[in-house]
Design a protein around this nucleic acid. Structure first.
Lengths: 77, 77
DNA sequence: CGCCCGATTTATCACTTGATATATCATCCA
DNA sequence: TGGATGATATATCAAGTGATAAATCGGGCG
């Protein structure tokens, strides 16, 4: 349960939840598509500012994904 | 009126407007103090995500700083 | 089958950032 | 005077990022 791997899965699951391509998902978060791809493939992990955006997006998806949020961020939604 | 220089001034003016040290200002924006220092001294410029935070902070300061916003971001507050 | 086409994966390079350490500067005050 | 302290400036290095290009992977479809 390596941290990199968890983040990779979180990002991919989150993106698939939104039904967006890596390119559009990147735009949604204010980053570029290679960045999303690197996150999803565990070759990099989100910067602090990017993490904020991810949490915020997760939150915006509402309670039905609160479980997901807890799983990856631990400390409450 | 080099772009780097304008951003440097914007960041410093904005920080002084808030009355915060570079360290606290950094925390406010979700970045670290060396980053703020590099911005203010023109040795680096904000990443896209950081720029969002700057604009947002500027906006949160309200209308009395709209002029400042226009000066540095050009396209309306 | 073979060809397009959208999506994904990987790679490279210059630049930004976080973490950390050191140095400089100003101010206060014993 | 001179030392303590807070704020700022600068440097280094590893890691993340944006821009760009190339390769690969599916599906549809002629």
């Amino acid at each position: 349960m390596d941290e990199q791997y968890s983040m990779a899965r979180l990002v991919r699951e989150l993106r698939e939840l939104t039904g967006l391509t890596q390119e559009k998902f990147a735009a949604r978060l204010g980053v570029t598509f290679p960045t999303i791809n690197r996150w999803e493939n565990g070759r990099a992990k989100p910067s602090p500012l990017a993490l904020e955006k991810i949490e915020s997006l997760l939150r915006s998806l509402g309670d039905k994904d609160e479980a997901l949020h807890k799983v990856y961020f631990g400390k409450e939604a």
